[in-house]
Nucleic acid binder design. Structure first.
Length: 590
RNA sequence: GGGGACGUAGUUCAGCUGGUUAGAACGCAUGCCUGUCACGCAUGAGGCCGCGGGUUCGAGUCCCGUCGUCCCCGCCA
């Protein structure tokens, strides 16, 4: 580049720069060669500006311009001039000016790009990931990653203003039971021993509280070796937050204000406080612990008359959802909903239409008109609306059946929203889901497992039930949900060793196992542990939502495929036998 | 682990009920062109139809398997 120094970015030039001598550098977006006159669209991350290579002004620049191709890296020295009125390009922000080149510097050539770089192009995910360094030049990726940076700055400032300090925690740590599969790292100095990459800095942040750093946060990478989804990568980023002497409401307020500031970056207005919903309400009304609350469409509870229970061989407690009159459902759509409902675990499905000439329903035949009408009236069915009904089979109720019914109602509701292409009433629907159950019964393992994690505090009033009725114990745990996506979760932690030990016992963790795996935590809890609690926010998901992207790959510079492969550097890969030997590792052949 | 969609030129795609030499657009190359901006015009190059097997006189097309990408279920405290 010699002594050249960039004076401006491409996208910033305006008529006010007219007459200025500038030096620009960037990539050739397009070349238009009119013979004795060449136009280059020069691009950097700020935008595009037209460069004119006129042989009368600079024969050498024009000569070099003939060699230039797309994605060549060039420097341009020249003068900003206002374009003649009929040559203005209103489609680009710099369209009123252009740069008359005096010198053109060829800084590097480039192979023909593997796919078009304009925003309209839709290259396959595979080639985008294989040539990620090219893909990153596209305006979309530039926009998303710069937004992510601005958002991260804001997080650091906000948390710092509230007294939180950022502290780094180890990546080489130890495997913990429960939860996701760990990524393991073999130890060279202790052959046969392994570090685990953290699924989250959970224990470290608790130890920081015990260590007297009463407010901590970290923008931190976490690792989970589980199957991927549009919103899940094997390594992902959390905003990890923990505070000592916590009041849940105080934490909520800090996080809500953070969200408000973040979404203001994309011009979204957010009303505070964010509504709260208990887990029980969420499951009852939306059939989900991460409800998309922007559509209404809430389930209500109906009690079937005895005759109906008999006719349907059904449990008397049914769930009903009113589909608005504006959304007609065809017979085949209703049939499809029935298939979905039953596939999702509902024992039976039916519906009642409120038509001008009366209620119409498949239930009329077995039940008669009067019971159908009274069900419809009980649900408050309005003219033109359709009432969807689901319930469990069998006359005895059970918690398992109740749960299946809730899950079916949630799945059905989402299908309905998708199928009817319903638009949410508001663009951003935040909700806190609180009072999660402490434990879930794992049918496969035949034991209770922690729904959040084993370090969560049960509600004080539920402590007496801890051993006698674990399923009834509520945790001091909460999730933050946005538009049906879980974007954060946390809890008030256990800070007393005796209760932590009781929780481990309920989870089937013997005293010895607990001591072996969490001895350091148990000891720490006995060394003056303050009450503490916190939250972890799914940073990739939040940035993706802000950017209007439906896949977190779009806000990650170098993401992996759905099979956890990095197509660019071809990881994972085999290693030299010597490396394995040093680690004392032998690969099993089969 | 299971289900679904896709895989044809550098890219995005078309290719019917199995039947001549597999097409289009964009991109690329060469030439012409002094006001273009999705420049234009002319000419041209470019294909292991993902891979392997099978059916058939004949397979891009049908069948089986396999690999890859995406989405979903399970899984993800």
């Amino acid at each position: 580049m010699g002594d050249w120094r960039r004076t401006h970015h491409c996208g910033e030039l305006r008529p006010s720069h007219a007459g200025q001598k500038v030096f620009l550098a960037g990539w050739v977006d397009r070349r238009r060669d009119l013979g004795h006159l060449i136009f280059l669209d020069l691009r950097d991350h700020t935008g595009i500006v037209q460069v004119v290579l006129n042989p009368e002004l600079s024969p050498s620049a024009h000569d070099k311009g003939e060699q230039v191709r797309s994605e060549y890296v060039v420097g341009v020295e020249g003068e900003v001039v206002v374009r003649a009125e009929q040559t203005v390009n209103p489609q680009i922000p710099t369209g009123q000016v252009e740069v008359q080149a005096r010198q053109l510097l060829l800084l590097n050539d480039a192979k023909t790009p593997p796919f078009p770089l304009d925003d309209g192009a839709r290259p396959s995910e595979e080639s985008r990931l294989r040539y990620r360094y090219v893909d990153l030049r596209r305006a979309r990726m530039q926009r998303n990653l710069r937004l992510r940076h601005q958002a991260a700055l804001l997080v650091r400032r906000h948390m710092s203003e509230h007294g939180f300090i950022e502290i780094e925690t180890p990546f080489l740590t130890r495997s913990t039971p429960e939860g996701a599969r760990d990524y393991l790292v073999p130890s060279r100095l202790r052959p046969g021993h392994f570090y685990a990459l953290p699924q989250s800095p959970q224990l470290f942040k608790q130890l920081l509280m015990i260590g007297g750093f009463d407010r901590y946060f970290q923008i931190v990478r976490c690792f989970r070796d589980e199957d991927l989804r549009a919103d899940r990568q094997p390594e992902f980023t959390q905003i990890d937050v923990e505070m000592a002497f916590p009041q849940r409401e105080e934490l909520f307020e800090i996080i809500e204000r953070l969200m408000q500031k973040l979404f203001a970056l994309v011009d979204a207005r957010m009303e505070l406080p964010v509504p709260r919903l208990t887990y029980a309400e969420a499951m009852e009304r939306y059939g989900s612990d991460k409800p998309h609350t922007g559509f209404g469409l809430e389930w209500a509870r109906l009690t079937l008359p005895a005759a109906a229970c008999q006719a349907l061989k059904a449990d008397p407690s049914a769930k009903a959802l009113r589909v608005p009159a504006a959304e007609p459902l065809s017979r085949s759509q209703l049939d499809q909903l029935q298939d979905w409902a039953q596939a999702s675990g509902a024992g039976w499905f039916s519906y009642i239409k409120n038509e001008p000439n009366g209620f119409r329903s498949p239930l009329t035949k077995p039940l008669g008109e009067a019971p159908v009408a009274s069900l419809a009236r009980a649900a408050g069915l309005q003219p033109g609306e359709i009432l969807l009904l689901i319930g469990s089979k069998g006359e005895t109720a059970s918690s398992l059946k109740a749960r299946q019914l809730d899950e079916a109602s949630g799945a059905l509701r989402l299908r309905l929203i998708e199928r009817l292409r319903l638009a949410p009433r508001a663009p951003w629907n935040f909700v806190w889901v609180v009072d999660f159950p402490m434990f879930e019964y794992d049918e496969k393992e035949n034991r209770f497992v922690a729904m959040h994690h084993p370090f969560t505090s049960p509600r004080e009033e539920d402590l007496p039930k801890l051993e006698s009725d674990p399923a009834a114990v509520k945790a001091r745990a909460y999730d933050l949900v946005l538009n049906g996506q879980e974007i954060g979760g946390g809890s008030i932690r256990l800070h007393r060793r005796d209760i932590q030990a009781r929780v481990f016992r309920v989870l089937g963790l013997s005293e010895e196992m607990a001591r072996e795996r969490f001895g350091f935590l148990m000891d720490a809890l006995e060394s003056g542990a303050p009450p503490h609690g916190g939250i972890a926010l799914g940073w990739d998901r939040i940035v993706a939502l802000m950017a209007g992207e439906s896949n977190i790959r779009e806000v990650i510079a170098f993401p992996k495929t759905a099979s956890a492969v990095d197509l660019m550097c071809d990881a994972p890969a085999t290693v030299d036998p010597e490396q394995l030997d040093e680690l004392g590792i032998q690969i099993k052949q089969d």
